[in-house]
Design a protein around this nucleic acid. Structure first.
Lengths: 109, 109
DNA sequence: TTCGCTACTCAGCAACGCTAGCTACTGGTA
DNA sequence: TACCAGTAGCTAGCGTTGCTGAGTAGCGAA
């Protein structure tokens, strides 16, 4: 799937991760693993961490440092109120785009 | 919708335009107008033209110069076989992403 | 001749994901 | 003891993409 997916993830990966966090708090390593499990096999580790730093800096998530039994402490992220509002916006934007694309796909057949 | 849509369009605008061309040949100005009509109100002219140059250079479209009654000659683009294959790929990638996002949206409720 | 519409082009910028590294803690193995 | 794999996080530099803002050019109407 490669390059097309890479470009498509720009702008959607953020929503994807926030959507995960809206279900339950999670930490970077875990999120990366989950994404890979879901078929996003070539998601780079660094990408997820950079994204998390970004959303934290924008105040969309709360962070808590939690010690791990195996390895360094985890940074557990959870969606806060601002993040929830932002995610709502994301779904609106996503629906807007998805509707128009789907309409084109139908028409093109 | 602004910034979120801008980022989301990276990777999808290309498919959007190719999908338009799969229905009928069209030229840049026309495509921009159509997009604005569909609600992509802040699509920049330059963006569409740059995209068209890109897909032409990659051999996904054929180009024909057609004189216009009003204004400079039009560059009419039409999707060729390679473009059609690429568009197929695009739909596959899009479905992959859309499915996973939709699943998250359901689960998050 | 000036305005507005049509039609295309281009340089410079910002945002984002990827590449390719690095640090650091734990437990198991040679 | 020394080493390695797995866990966990971080970073600099790069390429791609869309936007900003400006420019060129042709045509018809005021």
């Amino acid at each position: 799937m490669g390059k097309q997916l890479t470009e498509m993830l720009k702008g959607t990966l953020e929503g994807l991760v926030l959507a995960i966090l809206s279900g339950r708090p999670a930490y970077g390593y875990e999120i990366t693993a989950w994404l890979r499990d879901q078929g996003f096999s070539d998601i780079a580790e660094g990408t997820v961490y950079a994204l998390l730093v970004r959303v934290e800096r924008r105040g969309l998530v709360d962070v808590e440092k939690v010690p791990s039994e195996k390895g360094p402490p985890r940074k557990v992220y959870s969606l806060n109120a601002q993040g929830r509002a932002y995610l709502e916006e994301f779904w609106t934007t996503w629906s807007f785009l998805a509707e128009r694309l789907e309409r084109l796909r139908e028409g093109g057949k």
